[in-house]
Computed example of a mutant assay.
Amino acid sequence: MDPMERLLAERACERLVIDFVHRLDLGEPSSVAELFTEDGVWQWPEDGRLVKGRDALRAYFGSRPADRLFHRADGTWLLASRTLHLPFGGATPRTNSPLP
Rank of each mutant, 00 (worst) to 15 (best):
P87Q: 08
L24A: 14
E28W: 09
R11G: 02
R23H: 14
L35T: 00
T37K: 03
P29S: 04
E5L: 15
G53F: 11
P29C: 04
A12N: 09
R82G: 02
L50E: 14
C13E: 12
D25R: 06
P87K: 11
A12Y: 05
T95C: 09
P65S: 04
T37W: 04
G89V: 02
L35R: 06
L99R: 05
A33N: 03
V17G: 00
L50V: 10
A9S: 10
L26S: 08
D19I: 07
V51M: 01
G27N: 03
E34F: 12
E10A: 13
R15S: 07
A73F: 09
W44L: 10
A59P: 01
F20M: 08
H71P: 01
F70M: 13
V32Q: 01
C13V: 10
A80E: 10
V41L: 12
L69G: 01
E38C: 00
G89T: 04
A66N: 05
R64Y: 12
S63E: 10
P29H: 09
L84K: 03
I18V: 11
F36A: 08
S81D: 04
A56E: 04
A12G: 08
P87D: 13
E10S: 03
G53E: 05
V41Y: 04
A80Q: 15
M1I: 05
T83S: 04
A33V: 00
F61Q: 08
A56Q: 08
L24T: 02
P29A: 09
D47W: 11
G53Y: 14
E28C: 12
V32W: 04
C13S: 05
W77M: 13
